[in-house]
Design a protein around this nucleic acid. Structure first.
Lengths: 129, 129
DNA sequence: ACTTGACCCTATAGTTACTATAGGTTTTAC
DNA sequence: GTAAAACCTATAGTAACTATAGGGTCAAGT
């Protein structure tokens, strides 16, 4: 199939597919005589793998590491485990930050309506402090 | 004070200060004869305002809006309120995503150790599916 | 055979909020 | 007087794309 079809079946934009290829996340496809990319089914699996990783917010560099690891099936999977653990730590950290954020924003929102002008606006006041 | 001192007292890097100035978040300071920026205390307050907003993950564009609103004290503060509400919605959305993420990552991490090779690694398997 | 439109190609710029660098000028301390 | 520290502007780099410009290819219809 050509890139347009791959884009439709995978849900990735054409530019993203080309970008992933350039970054080494997808193997380089055959080309037609006219230089069009020509894919077989295996690339679809590669792309799904990348998409799944991205949906977990794993960075492209880490995805590349995972792909390299996949290609060494006899090695220890402890590095895979470490990578996921690290990702989890990142998510946990971000969640904490977001909770604090949410609290402050909610509190700010609740102080808004003393009167209706910016001069008396509690939100601006708390941002100023 | 010069930019180095402002940087130290505010905790913002020198480049960031210059960047904020370029983006119109700080008023342009006086200059010495030798073209060095010369700040008075009011800029420190402006900078604190920006920092506080950034700590709430408010985008620079939105901070600029807030600053513009601050300068119209007689107007209605409903736009301020809307901006904060929107920010809160954004945070809530991101928190939901992160929770889902965390769940999947935790589940993946727990499937790791069937044997110790990548070939049998449950994490890679779940990423493949 | 020719044209039209859909599809494809590469290369480059834009996005956000900074950080880092290069290459130069000014000030301060000795 | 000179050397170091601090400052200046302009530009490039970061992540993970998206969008655009300016072209080439291919299939269908006339």
């Amino acid at each position: 199939m050509k890139i347009g079809e791959l884009s439709k079946t995978s849900g990735c934009s054409i530019q993203t597919i080309r970008y992933y290829e350039k970054e080494g996340l997808l193997s380089e496809p055959e080309r037609t005589e006219g230089n069009f990319r020509l894919y077989d089914v295996t690339v679809l699996k590669q792309l799904e793998f990348v998409k799944h990783c991205r949906s977990l917010d794993i960075s492209l560099i880490d995805i590349k590491r995972l792909i390299d690891l996949k290609n060494k099936p006899e090695e220890s999977c402890s590095s895979v485990n470490a990578l996921i653990a690290q990702q989890l730590a990142l998510v946990n950290k971000r969640m904490k930050e977001l909770k604090a954020l949410k609290n402050e924003l909610q509190q700010m929102a609740s102080t808004c309506n003393s009167d209706n002008t910016i001069e008396g606006c509690g939100i601006i006041k708390s941002l100023d402090s």
